[in-house]
Design a protein around this nucleic acid. Sequence first.
DNA 1: CCGGATCCGGTTAGATACTG
DNA 2: CAGTATCTAACCGGATCCGG
Lengths: 232, 232
Amino acid sequence: MAEGSYKQFCPVAMAAEILCTRWTVVLLRELLAGSTRFNDLRRGVPRMSPALLAKRLRELQAAGILERLPVPTEPDVSEYKLTPSGHELRTVVEAVGNWGQRWVETKPTLENLDPELLMWDMHRNLNTDPMPHHRSTIQFMYRELPQTSSNWWLIVEPGKNVDLCSIEPGFDVDLYVSTDLRTMTEIWMGLNTVSRAKREDRIILTGSRELESAMQSWLGLSPFAKIEKLVS
Amino acid sequence: MAEGSYKQFCPVAMAAEILCTRWTVVLLRELLAGSTRFNDLRRGVPRMSPALLAKRLRELQAAGILERLPVPTEPDVSEYKLTPSGHELRTVVEAVGNWGQRWVETKPTLENLDPELLMWDMHRNLNTDPMPHHRSTIQFMYRELPQTSSNWWLIVEPGKNVDLCSIEPGFDVDLYVSTDLRTMTEIWMGLNTVSRAKREDRIILTGSRELESAMQSWLGLSPFAKIEKLVS
DNA sequence: CCGGATCCGGTTAGATACTG
DNA sequence: CAGTATCTAACCGGATCCGG
């Protein structure tokens, strides 16, 4: 830890030595969102190399921010869990995200579209309360994308975790969502709404009327969607 | 900006691209504390190379966080001033500092003692209200340090900025503070108090009784001194 | 499949010196 | 005062490979 030190006793500097290295805050966001296993974390930070991910996880353990716990029932599997100190970093990550939503321009943001990341976030934040009390399957179709990444399925069973598939799950589809990745990302980020996108024919919903009319409410948005944007 | 991108539309990632590079948060702390000129900023981040400082200042301008304004009355002098977007980063820097004060161990922190940084912070946060209504000169003596950095003077004139000198200013000294750098830093950080250090003979005050008895109140502490520490 | 380790080329940062 | 220039060391990205 003597390496890379700012050599300042100020708490901002001491914390920044740990937190403000490449990928660390993005990784913490993924841990705070609930991912615990190495390959789940990789899905949340897909452009981070596994070597650097492993290094950061070791550093965060050394800093007392997370613990590595072997899973007794599954050999060779470990879970990375935040300590109390790590959970308190939520205030830091939220402050960073709130500022980003308010002040980072949308144009560069929307140059970083990624269907897997979007679907991964959506499946985690989906709100099952306003949905039917039986299993629902929703198919998303991003028709401008190559076949390998254009079709996604969310399988929602009340009381269970939402499942995300990128290959046909075999169930009947209750609602088809046909749109483009940019529009869906804008809605997720709170920069657009389902109803406005429908009016402008940027999104087409086919199937269950019940699921269609409630989409804006069961679609969990980004945790920062409610923050007012102050720049273009 | 395409370089070094995390390629994530998430506001946390977009903001982290700008904020979570080396020295940036520490530099923002210094800007938020009020420094505006290149060499004042250097005093607040003394271990940062001027080349990197200049580069970061350019990046922060490009991100809309600060503006460079030439001073009309003084040629060849510019001031770096935070924009509204930059001022809102106070929440981020405070969140980082609060977490650091609570969760970073004191031992590594107190290995980064620096008399110039401490005096620079103290002179900026000093509270003149409980001081006499005439000019006061206070001499700090860190006797374990080499001569070049052991003696410091604060010159306080009501209604004016506090001056910091590292060479004898020529005024009569109203209060002598004889201590060691670690003790003074602990007091500044809220880990110790003037009265406890006096009882333990780690600080000796000589001169004006009025200045001596009010020291804990005119001595402005670190903005994070009030945050409860949760680790050793 | 899960959880990494290894290697190599490119980028970034630190140290010091220097300039208008 | 306000920065550049230059050289070296550390860090990072991307690909591949490995052991259970």
